[in-house]
Design a protein around this nucleic acid. Sequence first.
DNA 1: TTGGTCGGGGAGTGTGTAGA
DNA 2: TCTACACACTCCCCGACCAA
Length: 248
Amino acid sequence: MEELSPSQLATYLSKFLLAVREKNGEEYEPTTLRGFRSSVERYLKKHRYCESVVTGQSFARTRETLRSKQKQLKRDGKGNKPFEAASLTKEEIEMLYSSGAFGCNSPQALINTLWYNNCFHFGLRGGKEQRDLKWGDVLLKKDTEAGPERNPVFLYKLYKAKRPESYMDNNAPFYLAVNHANASKADLPGLKWFKPQPMGVNKLNSLMKDCAQMAGIGKDKRITIHSARKTLVQKLQDNNIPPPKSYK
DNA sequence: TTGGTCGGGGAGTGTGTAGA
DNA sequence: TCTACACACTCCCCGACCAA
């Protein structure tokens, strides 16, 4: 497309924005169309194209087409964020603990709870930021007496005791794969619950969904990996904590 | 069970601007 | 000057698929 003149490209883009549909024939969400345009813009920038699709004069009609299309889609009921992640209620968090999805009685429950704590207390995103987390990124500054399963310090110390020695240096991944061979005899003292191997990206990304399934929640709402972070934001809002200045 | 990749699409953040 | 909102742009979640 970088070989087309701006006026030719503008015409093609306008036609594309009007005609494009999902594979099943459905209309796309308004933000998706905007994303398509941004993708084209990025591509053209990379190829040093002479004009910007977003601000260039030759693309004024394309912009108008996109605006009209977005308005039409909104009128048709699109743009209501059908895939928006839902936050967790107090009752649902209780169910996660009572079902055994969260807690400290199994390697999987332990790592699920650590993941949730890191989302909820440190505001980490559920996937990449958690996966990039290293063992040395989390330091125990203030100790506390070993206590209940909901005490983050207790869980951290238990996790430390159950990790293999070879994965204790600062650059080791924080989340390790569960050793399922040992999971059935998890209460044996000194047994390592985790393998010297990072938890996989697919496993980490489906962690919250698996927990919700185990606890029997999320049938009427969308519980995803983002739900834990959303719960944190919801709680901050409910307690009238203002957003940081940089959010303005 | 894992890593890697891809396409679709929602979420997050910085910036510009109209209006109070 | 402040605030709310829209826009521009980027990030990355998510599911599917495949091979190891």
